[in-house]
Design a binder for these strands. Structure first.
Lengths: 226, 226
DNA sequence: CCACTTATGTGATGTAAATCATAGTCAACG
DNA sequence: CGTTGACTATGATTTACATCACATAAGTGG
């Protein structure tokens, strides 16, 4: 891959878009390219955090496993987003695993290089703070949902969150939705079937389309429409 | 309160401890003092984020309420820790409420002032990044617990987390522990009673003492000792 | 196009934890 | 010092969801 292409990818990322050409090519010189098939792991929970990643193309999910082996999807990211940053900042092992959902290309920047770059680019630090703040806010909202809302509402909120990021067509299986909402695949299938009957969503294999966002929103808020 | 006292408080905080005297007194000049009784609210979810806070004395909890009104404790903080920062960085309403647990004094710094200060102090930004990173890591760990672990293990993990921050004497009621672990007070009482029978903890009204941390850790990890 | 895998769908049954109910205990405070 | 209200405790009952068990599609790769 040409350096200019790397620059272009960085320029299109959320974090680095504000950099000038010089800065971009400086960073691009440090970045290495890596490619993954669907289901391949970029890193595993517990690995040493050598790299910080930006997605060039594709989609990845960040997952943790419970003591009984059940998978939980903490987050997923697509082109232009960064991941693996928390571990890199702290210098502690990755707190979760990252796995490609589809064929994915990423740019990796060595921890040391990235920290050096940050130290010399204060406005980048502010941007990172904003991104981390947003992610923390999301995580706290989800904590409350998992602790206090029922399956129906948790699922509705997950769907709305996904819709706000990717539009009304949501490219995930029931299995994946279940792993985000902290419930079983069967329960997700039953709940989505209900949503279909009520005309709130439609679906084809592997994806789901939100038809009536208003109704979904009502479901997510109040008690299950008694 | 004298400016010198404010400086001293800031100096003892986690975030500002690395500042020099000039910087501290500059910040101290911007800080206002506020006092709260136990159970008083510092701010409510949805309020405009005017201030960022550092605790001078006392303890506060950050809470959210589920649609059915159930309280969930997202975090608690004590002397030297900051809170309210996520909203301040993003400029969006506070995503949760902050309530004093005991009589508490805080220093508040106006959003605008704090952002200006940050922009001119890059090493502070790095420190903030580290703190946010740590909080994000914690939140993600708890997400996985809430989604995939059973009540017994969730409680054990909460207790260990608290122990690592405050020592083996944990000054919370069953009610508060329940609100952190996302379960009911009754369940928490039953579970702590079991822990007492097994000699893992002892307790007096309003606090709980970890007697056998090793056993508690075993409980938190594996399945409930089949 | 046929075997094979992955995704969806549905019923029967089990169970962890919530909910409901009631009571004893301790601290605070007029 | 007795009343009040928060905290702890424990039993009985309910329930939302998990688990188990199969069945039917819908892609996929040889």
């Amino acid at each position: 891959m040409l350096p200019a292409e790397k620059s272009e990818i960085l320029k299109n990322s959320l974090i680095f878009s504000s950099l000038n050409e010089d800065e971009l090519s400086g960073l691009a010189g440090l970045a290495i390219e890596r490619s993954f098939q669907a289901d391949e792991f970029i890193f595993w929970e517990g690995d040493e955090p050598d790299y910080f990643y930006v997605i060039a193309e594709g989609r990845i999910k960040v997952v943790k496993h419970s003591s009984s082996g059940k998978e939980f999807i903490i987050a997923f990211f697509e082109s232009g987003e960064m991941f693996g940053e928390v571990a890199v900042f702290e210098g502690k092992p990755y707190p979760a695993s990252a796995q490609a959902i589809s064929a994915t290309n990423v740019l990796g920047i060595r921890r040391r290089h990235f920290l050096d770059f940050l130290a010399t680019h204060p406005q980048m630090a502010m941007r990172i703070i904003n991104i981390l703040g947003g992610r923390l806010r999301d995580a706290q909202g989800r904590l409350k949902d998992l602790a206090g809302e029922r399956a129906q509402q948790r699922l509705a909120r997950i769907l709305l969150m996904l819709a706000s990021r990717m539009g009304h067509t949501i490219p995930f299986t029931r299995q994946e939705l279940a792993d985000m909402a902290g419930m079983t695949t069967e329960t997700t299938i039953r709940l989505t079937s209900q949503l279909k009957e009520r005309g709130i969503i439609s679906s084809v294999r592997g994806q789901l389309i939100i038809v009536d966002e208003a109704k979904l929103r009502a479901l997510a808020e109040g008690p299950p429409t008694v």
